[in-house]
Write a protein that binds this DNA or RNA. Structure first.
Lengths: 117, 117
DNA sequence: TTTGGTCATCGTAGAACGACGATAGGCCCG
DNA sequence: CGGGCCTATCGTCGTTCTACGATGACCAAA
C-alpha cells in the first residue's frame, strides 16, 4: 500500500502557508551564493522531478518518491538530503516513515533570485 | 585599457532582441532535463556573477570578466565554457578578443522553467 | 614579418558528485 | 518481545568539477 499518506497537510506536517515577504536582497555576494547553492541543488534531473512531485502534491509524500523514480532507495535518499541541505525541502518523521514537503519560503526566494537576473 | 569595448551592441555582436515567445513546455522530462542543465550551469557563485555582469552591461564584455573575478584567466575561461555549453551565453570573436553576451532566449526559458515550479 | 596582447586548451591534482549494495536504526503490528 | 517495513547512513568506485600554470592559436599593430 503506497497510497493514503498518513501525513495530512491539514494536520500541519507541512506547516502553514507562511506568506511573509522576503526582505533579503536579490543581488550582491550573498545573493549570488544563495542562488548558486539553490541552483546547484536543482542541477540534477532527479532532484527537479522530486521538487516537482512535492509541489504538485501539496500533501507531503515519503517513500512514494522512490516509486516514482528509476533509482535505488539509497540514491533517492541522498538526493533528498541534498535538497534538504539546500533548504528547499523539509523532512519530518511521521511514524515509521518520513514525510517530505517543499519549503515554500525557499522556493519563493529561488524564484525571486532567478527573476532578478 | 580595459574600457571601451570594441564590441558595440548596436553593431549586432549580440544580435537583435529576439522577442519570439518560447513555445516549449515547462513540464515533462525534457523540461526537467533543461532545467537541471541550466541550474547546474548556474550552480557556482562565479558563474552567477558572470551572468549578472553580462546582463548588467547589455554590451558584451570580454576579458573584463577576468578583472572582475578573483580567479585566474584559465579558470574564468572554463566557467565561460560551461555557460556557453549550457546555452546561456554566446561568444563571438571580435578581433583579438572574444565578446560574450547573454543569450536572452535561454535566460527567459530558465526563468519560465523556474517560475513553472 | 615580428612582436605583443588576448583568449582557448591541455595537463594535473584534489575535492565533490552520483550511483549502488550493504548495513544500521526506528517504529508498528503481531 | 520479536519480526517486518521504511528510511538513513556507510563504504566504495568511477566520473565530473574546480582551480591553477603552461602552452598554443589568433589577430592587430609595429
Amino acid at each position: 500500500m503506497t497510497k493514503a499518506s498518513t501525513c495530512d497537510p491539514a494536520e500541519g506536517c507541512c506547516g502553514p502557508a507562511d506568506e511573509a515577504p522576503d526582505l533579503r536582497p536579490v543581488e550582491g555576494d550573498e545573493a549570488d551564493d544563495d542562488l548558486a547553492a539553490l541552483a546547484k541543488a536543482l542541477g540534477h534531473p532527479a532532484r527537479v522531478k522530486i521538487v516537482r512531485l512535492l509541489v504538485r502534491r501539496d500533501a507531503c509524500v515519503c517513500g512514494d518518491i522512490v516509486d516514482e523514480l528509476p533509482l535505488a532507495q539509497s540514491t533517492v535518499s541522498q538526493h533528498l538530503k541534498v535538497l534538504k541541505d539546500a533548504g528547499l525541502v523539509r523532512g519530518e518523521i511521521d511514524g515509521p516513515r518520513t514525510c517530505y514537503c517543499i519549503e515554500p519560503r525557499v522556493l519563493r526566494r529561488l524564484k525571486a533570485l532567478v527573476g532578478g537576473l
